[in-house]
């Protein structure tokens, strides 16, 4: 039993989109269907306006509204804190997409925004959305946990790299990509993050570094007023700002 969570340090994040690319490669995402995306937005008015950005994975909320609304119980909260979709049960009604306050759920049957339509370039023969040449090995497809290439007409979302993290030994406090023992269990976006802005660990384990970070650097959750209680925390530090509060926050001494 763990409660996996992520900490994203916005002070370190450079908005390079390496995480987006790593996620797409790891999970064979369609172009544009970025489970992990970096949103860019303008802050302030001319002449003091500036471009800022926000990486946005699935928040794997403790009290996820998508889980509550699912009419077929296809979306569920795993005992280890993942919010996952069972593609065998999903009927593609998209209720979860409406319910999610973060907009991190995707439905692949929508109009393709990039050309060419890769679903036609690499069509699937077995009812999947597409059949890309760089897909993960067949045996790793896990529709019960929403891992792999999804079948048609289902909703998909970030799994916190369930296929990696779930193999971590019991009681591991942190999944650190720099530690050879835990690197293979670490989510793809965390492994690839060049400025090491991402941390991944067990929020319930008192020994974990993510807990320490959240406490020391005043971790903030997005849209906290919705009561979803995300398991992804953002650190603003002095240099960055978090859209939720737009206040710069510093270490409590």
């Amino acid at each position: 039993m763990a409660r996996w969570g992520m900490v994203i340090d916005l002070e370190k994040c450079t908005g390079c989109q390496a995480c987006t690319t790593a996620c797409s490669m790891e999970n064979s995402r369609l172009p544009g269907e970025n489970w992990q995306d970096v949103l860019f937005y303008n802050e302030g008015e001319y002449p003091s306006g500036k471009l800022t950005w926000l990486p946005r994975p699935c928040m794997h909320c403790e009290n996820a509204s998508c889980v509550d609304v699912c009419p077929t119980k296809a979306t569920y909260k795993d005992k280890d804190g993942f919010v996952l979709i069972n593609w065998d049960l999903c009927i593609g009604c998209k209720y979860c997409m409406i319910a999610c306050p973060y907009g991190v759920r995707f439905y692949a049957e929508e109009k393709q925004k990039t050309l060419p339509d890769v679903r036609e370039v690499w069509p699937s023969k077995d009812g999947k959305v597409w059949d890309p040449p760089w897909a993960m090995p067949e045996h790793m497809n896990d529709p019960k946990h929403g891992v792999g290439i999804q079948p048609r007409n289902v909703v998909s979302k970030c799994t916190f790299c369930y296929h990696r993290v779930s193999k971590a030994p019991q009681g591991t406090p942190d999944l650190d990509p720099n530690d050879p023992k835990t690197r293979e269990f670490t989510p793809a976006c965390v492994v690839t993050c060049a400025p090491t802005a991402r941390y991944f660990g067990d929020l319930d384990n008192p020994k974990s570094y993510v807990r320490q970070l959240i406490a020391e650097k005043c971790g903030v959750r997005l849209q906290d007023h919705t009561g979803n209680r995300p398991q992804v925390y953002y650190l603003a530090g002095e240099a960055a700002s978090i859209p939720e509060t737009r206040s710069t926050r510093t270490r409590k001494v």
Binding site: L39, C100, Y102, D224, P243, S247, T248, T250, K252
Partner: peptide
Amino acid sequence: KTEALFVRRVVANEPSGNAVA
């Protein structure tokens, strides 16, 4: 929905500005 992520929201009991103790 994406826009709503960037809406300024006042959170109760939150230190505003530089809350250096």
